[in-house]
Design a protein around this nucleic acid. Structure first.
Lengths: 132, 132
DNA sequence: TTACTTGCAAAAATTTTGCAGCTGT
DNA sequence: ACAGCTGCAAAATTTTTGCAAGTAA
C-alpha cells in the first residue's frame, strides 16, 4: 500500500476545492492551479483529484462509469447504479416521488414532470462478494 | 424545424433499446447494430440516439454534462443539476433521506452510509428566462 | 428535386498512463 | 537511498462534426 507523501500541489488542490461551493471540473481546477504553479500539468491535477477522492477527502461526482447509458423506458422512473460493478437498475418508490416533489418545490415551482433522480451505492451482489 | 424522415437504422436502434431492460452504452448499441448493418457507423448511432432522446422516445442517462465534477464537502449530501444551464447545487431534504433508506433497503441491507442521490431538472432561473 | 440520413474520417473533449527526473521522509 | 510525486507527452476513451454520396417523400 502506498505511503502518502506531502505535495504542495495536492495541498493546494484540496484547499482550492474546500473554498468553493460550486462543483468545479478538473479542467477548472487546473486553470486555477496554473496561477500558483505555472508548470503544473493536467495529469497531476487528475491524479491528485483521484487520490483525494480515494482517501475520502473530496467527492468525485462522476457519470455513469465513463460512457452515457440509454434507456427506452420513457415513463418517469429513477435509476440506481452500483458504484462497484457498474450495473444500472430501474427504481420505483413512493419515497422517491416525495423527494422529487420537494426538490421541485425548491428548484422549480411544484411541477415534477421532468424531474429525475439517480442513486449511487453498492448492490447486494457486490456486498456478498466483498465478504470473502 | 427539421422534418423527420424514416430511417431503417433509427428504427432498429429504437427497437433494440426497447427490447432490453439493462441500459446499454452507445458503443454496445453500435456493436449490436453492426450485426444487422455491417457498415453502420458509430456516428450514425450517436446521431440517432441523440435524436431519439430529443424526441422523447428514449432517455439519455448522461453524466454531469461531459466532465466530472469535484466537491470538497464530504458530509453526505445530494446534488441537483440543472439540465438547462448545467449548474450543480447541493441539496438537503428529509424526504431524500427517506428515499435513500428505501433504496438501501432494496439494494443493500439497511445501511445508508454511502448512498448518494442526484437529481436532474430545470431550475427557476432557467424557467424564468424561458418565458421570454 | 429537396431535404434528411448515412458512412467515413477527422476533430474535439475528457481522462489515463509511461517515463525520466525531482522531492519528501 | 527509497518510494512517491511531478511535468510532459502520448495514448485511450467517449462524443461530435464536416462532407460527399445515398435515400425517403
Amino acid at each position: 500500500m502506498a505511503t502518502l507523501k506531502y505535495s504542495r500541489q495536492r495541498e493546494s488542490i484540496k484547499e482550492f476545492l474546500t473554498g468553493r461551493t460550486d462543483h468545479p471540473t478538473a479542467d477548472f481546477v487546473y486553470e486555477n492551479m496554473k496561477q500558483i504553479y505555472p508548470n503544473i500539468s493536467l495529469g497531476t491535477v487528475y491524479r491528485n483529484l483521484s487520490l483525494l477522492a480515494d482517501l475520502g477527502e473530496i467527492q468525485k461526482l462522476s457519470s455513469f462509469g465513463g460512457a452515457d447509458r440509454f434507456d427506452a423506458r420513457t415513463v418517469p422512473h429513477c435509476h440506481f447504479m452500483c458504484t462497484r460493478c457498474g450495473r444500472v437498475m430501474d427504481v420505483f418508490s413512493e419515497h422517491i416521488d416525495k423527494s422529487l416533489e420537494s426538490i421541485a418545490a425548491d428548484f422549480k415551482d411544484g411541477q415534477i414532470s421532468d424531474y429525475k433522480a439517480r442513486f449511487f451505492g453498492i448492490c447486494k451482489e457486490c456486498l456478498k462478494e466483498e465478504s470473502h
